[in-house]
Write a protein that binds this DNA or RNA. Structure first.
Length: 506
RNA sequence: GCCGCGUUGGUCAAUCGGCUAAGACGCCUCCCUUUCACGGAGGAAUGACGGGUUCGACUCCCGUACGUGGUACCA
């Protein structure tokens, strides 16, 4: 019996969503769409101390911007709600108690101070990372060591307590990961994780299992950082009697820093000069963390870059539409090793996608820039310019830098590019060219070029010798589309004015 | 420290025992363009190391090294 595919993206609303999260969402989305299943957004806000206002909206906006919207979940509704774990709080306790009754979990009354003391003691004894585990629980304050009536009394008195899973002392948990194959753990290595916190909220471990079960999740794809706690989840399914409904697991490789070591973190962006967040995010202390969107990335480009970070369809090309990704996606072809983030390649993808944009789209993106500069031009003129400079644009916002001279006369000239070879003959060439230009009846590419080259020939000057000065006169530097293209675009009058002015300056 | 997971050019990666080891980004050279970019043609650059298994290992097994993750009443 195969159940309908249901996958979920379950982030914690603790800040901006960085690209690792976006990729996790993307893989979930692709898998769901490929199999005709549902993609669900669940918000894991069980840690009230880390909750950040606005983070949830940010996550939803990110998914929307990326074009990978949930079918169900926070902000989308559905029959398995609520989809925010904080709103599901009353549902978890019964399962924790069920586990205690069955002997798979226990109440623990140790105060944070007592646990800290235990750790200090063990550390002093040479244990670098003490755990609350099978060896330690025997002398701590819990329902395993305390008399039954005392436990009952403490509970009745409302004493703060947590519920911990009782990890078997000697057992092996083995499970199949869709990406890594068979993975096994010795239970003695895993500590007695807290399942239900003193405030009545479940920890991640209890919450994922309960919610995935209740929401009928069939596949759980998450970051590799969860692999070590997978045995806890597997055991929970078993102890709760839900083994039949346990989802298939896949632990995704991490996205690593481009330099040095470690996984990509929120701070790497500032440090290395590239975004790590999907959208702009303002932290509590007022600092801005730049988003890919605001930096000028097209969502399709980001998605395309991310999907290839850890996954490869094995086909020759690298540019995929979302539909094509869905068609080709295969979770088994996801890599096992972490991948370093490569901003250069990310930009290359964006350049590719910018090339697919229409002049109108580029013009739309450029209009606000012009407005901020106080420049007013005809829409048709703008679009023509956009098509002229498009191939030079990596970002939609690059038009201005590549085309400013179409909107205003150059203020500075790259004199060094002209003067070393500048002489009276050239100056005279331009003087004469001006005279002819003024009388030209048609002002387009070919007529300007014919006029220019004809004169050069008459004066026995190599066209190349005067073409560069012409360019500098029109746009100020060694850049831009073909010169005659520029001249015809800015018009006869403007061209003549610019040449006149510059010729007197050189 | 312990446990898990990894390891093909600088980076992303193909390969599923036959390799003279794809492709892409980046880099370099040349062509196009007497600008820049695009485009085109080339180039440098790779199986961590050591043992097995096999007629044959990048591919399978073991060990070492290295990387990475976990080791919270955070997710």
């Amino acid at each position: 019996m195969t159940r309908p595919v249901r996958v979920r993206f379950a982030p914690s609303p603790t800040g901006g969503l960085h690209i690792g999260g976006v990729r996790t969402a993307l893989f979930n989305y692709l898998y769901a769409k490929k199999l005709g299943g549902k993609f669900i957004l669940r918000i894991e806000d069980t840690d009230q101390t880390r909750f950040v206002k606005g983070a949830e909206e940010y996550i939803i906006e990110t998914l929307k911007w990326c074009g990978i919207e949930p079918d169900e979940g926070v902000g989308y509704g559905g029959e398995f709600g609520p989809y925010r774990q904080s709103e599901r709080k009353p549902m978890y306790r019964q399962y924790a108690e069920q586990l205690v009754e069955a002997g798979y979990a226990y109440y623990a009354f140790d105060t944070p101070e007592e646990i800290e003391a235990m750790r200090e003691r063990l550390k002093a004894g040479g244990n670098p990372a003490p755990q609350y585990n099978w060896a330690v629980r025997e002398y701590m304050k819990n329902s395993l060591t305390l008399p039954a009536d005392e436990v009952k009394a403490r509970l009745a008195a409302g004493e703060p307590h947590v519920v911990r899973i009782k990890m078997p002392r000697k057992d092996e948990v083995k499970f199949h990961d869709l990406i890594r194959g068979w993975v096994s753990f010795q239970t003695a290595q895993v500590d007695d994780k807290v399942l239900l916190k003193a405030d009545g909220m479940p920890t991640y471990h209890l919450a994922v299992v309960v919610d995935d079960y209740l929401m009928e999740i069939t596949h759980a794809f998450r970051g590799e950082e969860w692999l070590p706690s997978a045995p806890v989840h597997i055991l929970l399914y078993k102890y709760l009697g839900w083994e039949e409904k346990m989802p298939e697991f896949a632990h995704l490789p991490l996205i690593l820093k481009p330099d040095g070591n470690g996984k990509l973190s929120k701070r790497d962006g500032d440090r290395l000069g590239f975004p790590v967040f999907s959208l702009d995010w303002h932290t509590a202390d007022g600092t801005l963390q730049t988003g890919f969107r605001e930096r000028g990335f097209l969502p399709q480009a980001l998605i395309n870059f991310l999907v290839l970070l850890g996954w490869n369809p094995g086909v020759a090309h690298e540019i995929f539409s979302l539909d094509e990704m869905i068609q080709l996606f295969d979770i088994a072809r996801v890599h096992q090793a972490g991948a370093k983030f490569d901003f250069e390649k990310c930009k290359w993808f964006n350049h590719q996608y910018v090339q697919m944009q229409s002049a109108a789209a580029l013009a739309d993106a450029t209009e606000p820039v012009l407005a901020s500069k106080g420049v007013k031009v005809e829409r048709a003129y703008l679009e023509h310019i956009c098509s002229l400079v498009k191939e030079r644009c990596t970002f939609m916002s690059d038009v201005w830098d590549n085309a400013f001279f179409f909107f205003e006369a150059p203020k500075d000239y790259d004199f060094d590019a002209v003067r070393p070879k500048w002489n009276d003959a050239k100056k005279s060439f331009f003087t004469q060219f001006l005279e002819r230009a003024k009388t030209l009846s048609t002002w387009d590419n070919t007529s300007i070029e014919a006029c220019f080259k004809g004169l050069a020939e008459e004066l026995s000057i190599k066209v190349g010798e005067v073409q560069m000065p012409m360019r500098i006169m029109l746009c100020g530097g060694k850049f831009g589309p073909p010169v005659f293209e520029i001249a015809s675009t800015i018009g006869q009058k403007e061209s003549i004015e610019r040449i006149e002015k510059a010729n007197s300056l050189f």
